[in-house]
Design a protein around this nucleic acid. Structure first.
Lengths: 244, 244
DNA sequence: GCAAAAGTGTTAACTGTACACCCATGT
DNA sequence: ACATGGGTGTACAGTTAACACTTTTGC
């Protein structure tokens, strides 16, 4: 082990790392949609040459969230992220074999239309065929996917994976890829409209190669909202409730 | 601001603090159940004399989760915690006015029957009448309560707030206090039984002062399980799904 | 006209809430 | 006997999956 650095009061000091699990659905237009995660090939040891989540050290005067944004912008040229939320903090003593590091992972989401030029050492990897990854990053990616799937069910988080306007067929393909199972358009539309997440723009997109022109839709909000709050054990409709 | 301590590669180093939001329902037997959080009066600056969440510095060779357990055991004599899970990590540069500190908060749950002797500077505070608290702890407590309430709806997390055996009247009182609104016994029992969380022991508790003796129940599992996974957009029952 | 894609309507199953009613015990 | 608390049964409403059917376009 290493001799820990300590402050004046004797408290141990840690390097703190910001990790980004950035997810994006690609191939929506090509009818071959799949959920992908952004990985970057490591240059130096440990795990030199191995794929890993984009990361970097937190600076003394920034929050971890700001640090994730900064490293994504500088290291993988990803400046625009539609939604960013904290996932988890990893702190096992042995997780980084080279030095004691605590890492906080964030989940970032990018619309399927947003396909920026990446540096040559970064790439989107389909979650169905992930390569070997460094450190505990495989588990973190799993947590990120699980978080996204859960929130697709009870929040409007899908806005962050979609562009401003889209057809229902596109949205269906995106949901199916993100959730990992088929989704019926009819029911998807009904559920989202009932919850007030979705609205028609009135515009239509001309069809190519036959078929009725598709109506365009948009999300009513671009901020994360919980749209289906209590699955069960919700408060009584009419009667008295305990305060708070 | 302070001059940050740095390691050999120039990365900033941080003191890391473990925070515990320990929740417990008290007064179930006395028919005046309320959700409480464990607070400790700070001895030294900053915020000397102010109530705060139990906390302490993480050691170099321990994880944050282990550190929370250690500080709860030593600082507030709380050794037995039925469930502990990570809540969030706080990292705003100004959150601790005396030194740069990153803190990771954990949510801990204790059964209503577990009322250990606390040190004189610690106490359970009803969440309806919280005192002024130090740092950003008020927001963290709010997050802890929100997490508990959400998970009561779709997991079996209630096992961690209840003893091994209990009557439905007790369980109802606990749920009502934890959720902050009335809960009907009949429906509570039905929902929990349908999900396979609850089973009757067959034993009965003799009534005192009239009334039919109450049947005793237990939770079928003492591990956290998601019992109501998808609120909506669940996979198709019969048909083909995309892999993974 | 016909294929292709989009959109509408209807049904059935499931889940949870509300509420009336019945049961067992102590005084 | 009757008050007190525990337990059971049933009706009703909301939500969602499943699926048949209709509409609008290009060729």
């Amino acid at each position: 082990m290493f001799e820990p650095v300590r402050d004046g009061q004797g408290a141990a000091l840690f390097r703190h790392e910001a990790l980004g699990v950035v997810l994006r659905v690609r191939g929506v237009a090509e009818r071959a949609a799949e959920l992908t995660v952004l990985l970057r090939r490591r240059r130096r040891a440990p795990f030199a040459g191995v794929w890993a989540l984009p990361s970097g050290s937190v600076e003394a005067d920034e929050s971890v969230g700001a640090s994730v944004r900064r490293h994504l912008a500088t290291r993988v040229d990803l400046a625009e992220i539609a939604h960013l939320e904290q996932l988890e903090t990893l702190s096992s003593p042995g997780r980084d074999p080279s030095q004691r590091t605590i890492a906080t992972a964030y989940l970032g989401l990018v619309p399927w239309t947003n396909d920026p030029q990446l540096p040559e050492n970064a790439a989107w990897h389909p979650i169905a065929e992930l390569p070997e990854t460094a450190f505990d990053h495989a588990a973190v990616i799993g947590h990120g996917i699980a978080r996204l799937r859960a929130k697709l069910s009870y929040t409007n988080i899908a806005f962050a994976l979609a562009p401003a306007e889209f057809t229902m067929a596109e949205l269906r393909a995106m949901y199916a890829a993100a959730l990992g199972h088929e989704v019926a358009v009819t029911n998807l539309q009904r559920v989202l409209e009932r919850r007030g997440q979705l609205e028609a723009t009135g515009e239509h997109r001309p069809s190519q190669g036959g078929g009725r022109p598709a109506g365009l839709f948009r999300f009513t909000s671009q901020e994360l909202e919980v749209t289906d709050p209590f699955a069960t054990l919700r408060p009584a409709s009419r009667h008295h409730g305990i305060e708070r």
